Amino acid sequence: MDFSTPHTERSFFLIAGPCVIEGRDHAHFLASSLRDLAEARGIPFLFKASFDKANRTSKDSYRGTSLEEGLDILSEIRTRHGVPVLTDVHESAQCPLVASAVDVLQIPAFLCRQTDLLLAAGATGRAVNIKKGQFLAPWDLRHAVDKVRTVDGHGPVWVTERGASFGYGNLVVDFQGFPHLRRTGCPVVFDATHSVQKPGALGHATGGAREMIPTLARAAATAVDGFFFEVHEDPSKALSDGPNAIRLDAFGDLLDQLLAIWRASRAATLADPAAHP
């Protein structure tokens, strides 16, 4: 995969996997299943899973594996299934070790202004995916991008929309933000699953409106280079973010819809670039 231009002329690129590593066998099952869905459609695919979810609502919530075990699983997936791998980093000191096991370092939305973390991620030379904070105006994400780009030897940078805080316990997606994100010069990704979160809605955990995922994803297909999805075979049993994960058995149909919209939109853009800023 060309991380500078990860999509192709015929397809967006896809970042997908479980919210958090739930175990070695489970991670391999989802990596294999998602790779097969993507390959059948000619979609460039990256497997994603977190070794640690450091921002869970409750301290008693499942956070993931240890750093060492998580990176061992991710590295194994990378090798066995032949797919690039993406995972979150939460602290500057994690970046060099994580970069030895994965292809893309992801900056969580809540941490997108953390200068030291951004610089450390950039210094690894790996691709860096910056998720726009729920509190941040889309045009202000350029500052986070600039921080990574100031590092000698930095790799490609991507930017991801994942919804903005709207009062308490709700997120909305402002589709006017996508042209602003594109002005960073980075590939633009839409996280369709975190965008339907209901932060803290379950009292002890975050809720979500899973049924809205297809609607938002189809709308975003006209404006992005890639998609991010949390996928689980049984979201009701997921150890993290189940309420906003899409079911594995419904995912192929949605990918088909998104490809059709994305291709039609790109054809229109090529025909009249001025009509699609």
Rank of each mutant, 00 (worst) to 15 (best):
D88S: 06
D88V: 01
K53E: 09
G169P: 08
Q134I: 01
R142D: 04
R113L: 14
G133E: 00
A54C: 06
V148S: 01
A101K: 13
G163T: 02
T79S: 15
Q94P: 05
G64T: 00
S61V: 09
L71D: 03
R142C: 14
V83F: 14
S66R: 12
V157P: 00
A137I: 08
P96Q: 04
A120D: 00
K59G: 11
T57W: 09
A164W: 00
E69V: 13
T57L: 13
D116A: 09
A93L: 09
A109H: 15
L111N: 03
A49I: 04
S66T: 14
A121Q: 05
L67F: 10
A49V: 10
S100E: 15
S58T: 11
K147P: 05
D88Y: 05
H143R: 13
I107K: 09
V159T: 01
V102M: 10
K131V: 02
E91P: 02
V145W: 06
H143W: 12
C112Y: 14
F135V: 02
R113Q: 15
G155P: 05
N170E: 02
I130F: 10
G82R: 06
D60V: 10
T79Q: 15
A54N: 05
V102E: 03
G169Q: 01
H143C: 07
K147A: 12
G163D: 05
A164V: 05
E69Y: 02
A137C: 11
L119M: 05
V145Q: 09
I107A: 11
F135A: 01
C95Y: 00
A144Q: 09
F110S: 12
R56I: 13
G155T: 07
R113P: 08
P108R: 09
A101V: 13
D88P: 04
Y168K: 04
A121H: 04
L118D: 03
F51C: 01
T57S: 14
S100P: 02
L111Q: 15
V128F: 01
F110D: 11
E76R: 15
T57D: 07
P156G: 10
L111S: 14
H143Y: 12
S165L: 07
R78G: 07
T65A: 09
T79H: 12
F135D: 04
W158P: 02
V151Q: 14
T150H: 13
C112Q: 14
L97Y: 06
T124L: 00
V83I: 03
H90M: 03
A123E: 14
V98K: 04
N129G: 07
W139F: 07
T65G: 12
R78A: 14
S165N: 15
V151F: 09
L105H: 08
G122Y: 03
E76M: 14
D52R: 07
